[in-house]
Amino acid sequence: MSMFDGLKYRSVSSPIHSIDPRAKLVYVCVLFVISVLFSQLIPLLIILLIQVPLVVLARVKREWLRLLRGSTFFALLIFAMNVISLYFYGASQSIYSIIEHALAMSVRFIVLVESFSIFFLTTSPDMLGLSMEQMGVPYELCFAFTTAIRFIPVLAEEAQTIIDAQRARGLDLEGGNFMKRIRNYIPILIPLIVSAIRRSIELAEAMESRAWGATKKRTNLYVLNMRRRDYAFILLSLLMLAVSLYVWLAIRIPSLIQILEDLNIL
């Protein structure tokens, strides 16, 4: 299992799963705006923590934790880059405030990962496609989107079979210099592309045989209906945005260092 499983839809039933994808989309956008808005550690930490109950409610803790573990590398990278650049190139600051700022940037990254994973873990791609459709995205695009997702596991399996088949004929993927390594992938890429083309022709044939494009007024087995709690969720998200904007405009946010200094800890 890879860290990408933390972005893969888990089919469980939870209050978060049943929220309309469009409402969740609003939530993700709000979260995105807020986390870009603030660059101080304290508000970002607060945003990180207030999302935790959602994760628990959605019953996707395990996958979510795995994703967080997977993103620690990037978080550390961001931290290190910030420390280095601020230390050497930034205006002279105390080392404490440099660390605080770098930490804030890492937390911002984690917040973004967190909110995106809540969205993708709890929204089936089918429903996402459907909500795109209902928001007026052309059907062809939505269909391409869901079909692409449907074929990811199939293509992954096929790629593995091709790799196995060529290794069984003595292909060594590891050896050689850079150019040789790239050339090593030709025997894998060609069969993969050829069979993807063949597959797409077969798909097109099957689609045609099932009345693809018969009418402009296509219907849909499922309809998404916004219910009261979906509106409530949107309202809540917008409220969060409003509060954040207010805080951002009207309140001078103290830094953690300052607080600690005031309390005479440092």
Partner: peptide
């Protein structure tokens, strides 16, 4: 290669959706 949707019933509905049948 003849199943496109992400669940079974959606797939079975595909042709009828294309033909614009009522839900």
């Amino acid at each position: 290669n003849q199943l496109f949707a992400l669940n079974v019933e959606k797939d079975v509905a595909f042709g009828l959706e294309n033909l614009g049948y009522p839900r």
